[in-house]
C-alpha cells in the first residue's frame, strides 16, 4: 500500500530528502566513530527506518509533541534537526539534550516538540495519550505522536492506550515502526493476528497500513491521518513496515545471527532504500546533481560542526551528579 497519490511538490521533496539525509549521515558518523569509545551509551540505530519518523514529523510541520522509543535517533533528528544537542548528548556533554545524563536512549527537546524517548519498551505510549489529553484541554493546537516498535504492540499497555485514546476521543497518532522483529524474534512468533490493524480497528481507531518503504508515501498518509483524527476526534494507528539495517543494539550488522537473510533484506529493502529513492526523485524534479551534492555537503558540514562543538563542550562536573534529582533549583 502506498499513499503518495500524486507527486509531492518539489519543495516538500527536497525537505524530505534533507531530513532523511541528516538522519542517515548522523548515524553513519556514529558507526564510524563509535569504536573510539567516546560515545559510551548503548545505541539502537534507526538506519533504514528513518523514513517513518521523517515522513510523519515532516507532515506535522513542527506542530507535534513527539514521543519515541530508545530507537530514538531518527525521531529526534526528524523532529528537531538539532545535531548540536544530539551529538553532545551522545558524547556525554553538558550541552546535550539531557546535559549528558540521558544518553542515546533518552533524548528530549520539549521546546522543539520532541518530548522524550524512553528505554523501557512501550512506556512512552500512554504518556503520549496524556499529552493529547492536555493538548485538547489547553487548546495548544499540537498533535501527540508516538513512535514505537512492533514489539511494543505485544505489551498490554499498548492496548490500554489505544482503548483509552479512543474512549477519550483523542487524536493521538500511534505510529508503529514495524520492522518485523523484537530483537531477533519475528512478529509471527509473538502475535497471532495476521495484521495489527485488524485488531486495533475495533477499538475505535482509524488504521492505516503502509509497506511502501517510501518517505513520500508516509508523509501523505500522515497528513491524511492527522487531519481525520482531529476532524473525527479519534486516534489513528499507522502501521509502517520498515527494515532495521543494523543489529538490534550497536553499530554492527547481524547477518550472522541466523534469524534473517542478508540477500533477502537487500533485495526487499536496501535496494529500494528510501534515501536513495528520494535522491532520485530530486533529479526527476530537475534538481541538478551539483545542487543535490551541495545540499549533501551542507548537511555533512553541519554534522561535522556539531560533532566538533560537542567534543569541545564541557564534560559534566561532579556537582551535577546530585543536581536535579528533586525539584530544587538545579
Amino acid at each position: 500500500m502506498s499513499f503518495a497519490r500524486e507527486p509531492l511538490p518539489k519543495a516538500t521533496a527536497i525537505q524530505l530528502f534533507k531530513s532523511l539525509y541528516l538522519a542517515r549521515r548522523s548515524e553513519e558518523y556514529i558507526v564510524k566513530h563509535y569504536p573510539e569509545n567516546l560515545m559510551r551509551t548503548p545505541m539502537h540505530m534507526s538506519m533504514g527506518q528513518e523514513f517513518v519518523c521523517v515522513g510523519v514529523c515532516s507532515a506535522l510541520e513542527g506542530k507535534a509533541d513527539v514521543f519515541a522509543s530508545y530507537r530514538s535517533h531518527a525521531a529526534f533528528l526528524a523532529q528537531t534537526h538539532d545535531t548540536d544537542r544530539f551529538f553532545s548528548e551522545l558524547y556525554g556533554r553538558t550541552s546535550g539534550t539531557g546535559e549528558g545524563k540521558g544518553g542515546s536512549m533518552h533524548l528530549a527537546a520539549p521546546d522543539q516538540g520532541h518530548i522524550l524517548s524512553s528505554g523501557v519498551v512501550a512506556t512512552q505510549i500512554p504518556v503520549a495519550v496524556g499529552a493529547a489529553f492536555a493538548n485538547r484541554q489547553l487548546k495548544t493546537g499540537r498533535t501527540a505522536v508516538v513512535f514505537f516498535g512492533d514489539g511494543a504492540a505485544d505489551a498490554g499497555v499498548f492496548w490500554e492506550s489505544i482503548n483509552a485514546a479512543a474512549l477519550f476521543k483523542l487524536p493521538v497518532i500511534f505510529v508503529c515502526e514495524d520492522n518485523g522483529y523484537a530483537v531477533d524474534t519475528p512478529r509471527e512468533a509473538r502475535q497471532m493476528s495476521k495484521s495489527l490493524s485488524d485488531v486495533v480497528k475495533p477499538f475505535g481507531a482509524d488504521t492505516y497500513e503502509d509497506d511502501s518503504g517510501d518517505v513520500e508515501s508516509v508523509y501523505s498518509l500522515a497528513k491524511e491521518a492527522v487531519a481525520k483524527a482531529h476532524r473525527d476526534r479519534r486516534p489513528a494507528f499507522l502501521n509502517i513496515k520498515c527494515c532495521r539495517y543494523l543489529e538490534h543494539v550497536g553499530i554492527g550488522t547481524d547477518w550472522n545471527w541466523g534469524y534473517r537473510d542478508q540477500a533477502t533484506v537487500e533485495r526487499e529493502w536496501i535496494d529500494r532504500d528510501a534515501l536513495k529513492v528520494q535522491r532520485k526523485r530530486l533529479a526527476e524534479h530537475q534538481v541538478s546533481e551539483a545542487a543535490i551534492a551541495a545540499i549533501e555537503d551542507e548537511i555533512d558540514k553541519a554534522i561535522q560542526a556539531s560533532v566538533k562543538r560537542a567534543s569541545q563542550a564541557p564534560i559534566p562536573t561532579p556537582d551535577r551528579l546530585h543536581a536535579g534529582v528533586f525539584y530544587e533549583k538545579a
Binding site: 559510551r40 551509551t41 556525554g92 556533554r93 549528558g100 545524563k101 540521558g102 544518553g103 533518552h106 564534560i315 559534566p316 562536573t317 561532579p318 551535577r320 551528579l321 546530585h322 534529582v325
Partner: peptide, 9 residues
C-alpha cells in the same frame, strides 16, 4: 540519583 550516562558522572 538516577544513574547518569556521562562517564564523568
Amino acid at each position: 540519583a538516577p544513574c547518569p550516562t556521562a562517564k564523568s558522572l
